[in-house]
Simulated assay, not measured.
Amino acid sequence: MRRLLLALPFALLPLAAVQANEHDHDHEHDSLGAHEHGVARLNAALDGNTLELELESPAMNLVGFEHAASSNADKAKVAAVRNELESPLVLFGLPQAASCKVASQELESPLFGADEHHDEHAKGHDHKHSEVHAHYRFECATPDALKSLDLAGLFKRFPATLKIQVQLIGPNGQQGAELSQSNATLSF
């Protein structure tokens, strides 16, 4: 399943290129992997009973800053955000009828202190862009009941996240969508 998620961005590159050409943005980093405040990316893949979600977001969207947490207030904020990311069933609205349980989760960010070597190396750079990566795997007893994914909880908890670019592989093939606070639900 991990291979499926890793292949997802490549499978949807033609779709992203078409959308970029249609919208003709003037952003200097207009690509699938761009670091843009207010914008997060979510890869979702449903395969049998397994649903995988991979969220990538600039730390600014979630924590409110990107520098290493040094003050007690900053450390408390990072800890609070990490704690909330450890409750994916609150952030991602999955239909109760699907009976999904969290099978595994991984959280990565330089702010969480997991990669000390990277932090030391990055301190020498003027423009440090801290990202938060969250990978969740759910086992769903009734995957046919997964008709939608509601991100309202994510937008509500992290209001600096203005839009989420979603790439989904599900029973009906692959699709891409851009969700916002006013349009927070994606149908499978």
Rank of each mutant, 00 (worst) to 15 (best):
A98T: 06
A98P: 05
A98F: 03
A98D: 05
A98G: 05
A98Y: 03
A98C: 05
C100N: 01
K101P: 02
K101W: 09
K101F: 08
V102Y: 05
V102F: 06
A103I: 02
A103F: 03
A103K: 11
S104R: 11
S104F: 04
S104T: 06
S104H: 09
S104K: 12
Q105C: 01
Q105N: 05
Q105D: 04
E106F: 07
E106T: 13
E106D: 12
L107H: 04
L107K: 05
L107C: 07
E108M: 15
E108T: 15
E108C: 14
E108Y: 15
E108L: 15
S109G: 05
S109C: 03
S109Q: 00
P110C: 09
P110H: 11
P110M: 12
P110S: 09
L111F: 09
L111A: 06
L111Q: 05
F112I: 02
F112V: 03
F112E: 03
F112M: 05
G113H: 08
G113I: 06
G113E: 10
A114I: 10
A114D: 11
D115M: 04
D115A: 09
D115G: 00
E116Y: 06
E116I: 14
H117M: 12
H117L: 13
H117D: 15
H118I: 12
H118E: 13
H118D: 13
D119S: 06
D119T: 09
D119V: 08
E120R: 14
E120W: 11
E120L: 13
E120T: 10
H121Q: 08
H121D: 06
H121F: 07
H121G: 02
H121S: 02
H121A: 10
A122F: 10
K123G: 11
K123S: 15
G124K: 10
G124W: 08
G124N: 10
H125I: 09
H125K: 06
H125N: 04
H125P: 00
H125L: 14
D126A: 13
D126L: 14
D126V: 09
D126P: 04
D126T: 08
D126N: 06
H127Y: 11
H127W: 12
H127C: 12
H127G: 06
H127V: 08
K128P: 00
K128R: 15
K128M: 11
K128C: 07
K128G: 05
K128D: 10
H129W: 10
H129P: 04
H129V: 02
H129A: 08
S130Y: 01
S130G: 02
E131M: 12
V132D: 00
V132F: 00
V132C: 01
V132T: 01
H133C: 09
H133K: 14
H133V: 12
A134I: 02
A134Q: 03
H135C: 04
H135D: 11
H135V: 07
Y136I: 04
Y136W: 09
Y136H: 08
R137F: 00
R137M: 01
R137Q: 07
R137C: 00
